[in-house]
Computed example of a mutant assay.
Amino acid sequence: GTATVDVEMLLWLIGASVFIAAAGYIINDYFDLNIDLVNKPDKLVVAKVINRRWVILWHLLLSLIGLLLSGYVSIKLDSYWLTIANAACIVLLFIYSMSLKKQLLSGNLLISLLTAWVILVLALAEMHSISTEPIAIQEAHRKIFRLGVLYAGFAFIISLIREVVKDMEDREGDRRHGCKTMPIAWGMNATKVFVAVWIIVLIAVLLVLQVYVVSQFQWWISALYCVVAIVVPLLMVLRKLYPAQSPAEFHRLSTMIKLVMLTGILSVVFFYFYI
């Protein structure tokens, strides 16, 4: 029935996002070649793994696949905003790689917004066919949409934190190539304060949400998971943030934040049981 179509469409949409993200990653590496030679010479994908001339081709190919998948979903759902929005994502990722990432904060914000968009697009697709369905199903869809918005918010904040931590890690290569990232423009201490504030905001919101779900729905297990798998690691990042100096230390923090992203996304599983 419609449930399988929904799942199928969501999977196609996720596929589209993956291809578009991969295309963005490749083009980003292409424009970053000189910076990466300083920051991470051992991890270069472009030039070592893929010839530079082929990079643009791969970028176009992956972008095209992402667009075609978006188009397929658009036709099936009869809503063309999906394709337009994903096309905009491709263009924005290209602009980001070419120039925005060298600017103060705008690149960080763009990547964070695009990360949130990947989740939000699923929530919006979920809301798509709501008007024709029975009231009970409409309510379920609305719940899923609200969840999607919450997760998109989480994705935005955690991505912003990670992007700025990565800027701290990459500051040497960035400085040599005239990038005006936050650690270069504001200095390391101010940047650490910026990151710390966002971590505290995220922890506070998560804790408030846990109090709410426990008091309203008695979701003890999900609350416990959130505290142990998301809040505690964030507190560890917060504790290690200020003393961190070397790129290796910031890299470790970045990896920890990536793990928090993962545990955050995995918490979706609880809603499968609870809703």
Rank of each mutant, 00 (worst) to 15 (best):
Cys179Lys: 00
Asn51Thr: 09
Trp81Ser: 09
Glu169Met: 05
Arg146Gln: 13
Gly153Glu: 04
Ser129Thr: 11
Leu68Ile: 15
Phe270Gln: 04
Thr263Cys: 05
Tyr151Glu: 01
Leu120Glu: 04
Val211Thr: 15
Phe270Arg: 01
Val231Pro: 02
Leu92Glu: 04
Val227Phe: 15
Gly178Ile: 02
Thr2Tyr: 14
Met168His: 06
Ile275Phe: 13
Leu234Val: 05
Tyr80Met: 08
Leu57Arg: 13
Tyr212Gln: 10
Gln218Arg: 13
Ala123Val: 02
Leu110Arg: 03
Trp58Lys: 04
Asp32Met: 01
Glu172Thr: 10
Gly66Met: 04
Leu44Val: 04
Ile50Ser: 02
Val49Gly: 09
Ala248Met: 13
Leu209Asp: 11
Thr2Trp: 14
Pro134His: 08
Asn39Tyr: 00
Ile130Met: 13
Tyr242Asn: 11
Glu172Ala: 12
Leu10Met: 15
Ala185Ser: 11
Lys143Val: 09
Met256Tyr: 10
Val193Phe: 14
Ile265Met: 12
Thr263Gly: 03
Gly178Pro: 04
Arg175Leu: 10
Ala229Ile: 05
Ala223Gly: 11
Ile221Trp: 14
Leu64Asn: 13
Ser99Gln: 14
Ile56Phe: 14
Lys192Tyr: 02
Arg142Met: 14
Arg52Trp: 07
Tyr80Gln: 10
Ser74Cys: 03
Asp167Tyr: 04
Val214Thr: 09
Gly264Asn: 03
Leu235Val: 12
Ile230Val: 15
Lys180Thr: 08
Ile157Val: 15
Ala85Ser: 13
Asp42Glu: 14
Leu147Ile: 14
Pro233Leu: 00
Ile26Glu: 00
Leu206Asp: 06
Met256Ser: 13
Val227Glu: 07
Leu120Pro: 03
Ala136Ile: 09
Ala22Gly: 04
Gly148Lys: 01
Val73Tyr: 02
Arg162Ile: 06
Gln218Glu: 14
Asn189Leu: 11
Thr4Cys: 09
Ser74Trp: 00
Met127Pro: 01
His251Glu: 12
Ser97Lys: 00
Gln216Gly: 06
Thr2Val: 12
Met188Tyr: 07
Ile203Asp: 03
Ile119Trp: 05
His59Phe: 15
Leu57Ile: 15
Gln245Leu: 11
Ile130Tyr: 05
Val73Pro: 04
Val49Thr: 13
Met168Trp: 03
Ala87Arg: 06
Cys226Met: 13
Val118Thr: 13
Phe154Ile: 01
Trp220Glu: 07
Tyr225Phe: 11
Leu120Lys: 00
Met256Phe: 07
Leu33Pro: 00
Leu10Lys: 10
Thr83Ala: 08
Leu93Val: 06
Asp29Tyr: 02
Met168Gly: 00
Ala185Glu: 14
Ile84Ser: 06
Glu139Leu: 14
Met168Thr: 03
Leu64Ile: 08
Val213Gly: 02
Thr2Pro: 11
Lys76Phe: 08
Met168Tyr: 01
Val208Ala: 15
Ile75His: 13
His141Tyr: 12
Ile26Val: 14
Ala140Glu: 12
Leu11Thr: 09
Ala140Tyr: 10
Ser79Phe: 14
Pro243Ser: 09
Ala140His: 11
Glu163Asp: 05
Ser70Thr: 05
Leu64Cys: 15
Phe94Gln: 06
Ser254Asn: 08
Ile75Thr: 10
Cys89Met: 13
Pro243Lys: 09
Arg176Gln: 13
Glu172Leu: 12
Asn108Phe: 04
Leu120Gly: 10
Glu126Leu: 14
Leu109Pro: 00
Glu139Trp: 10
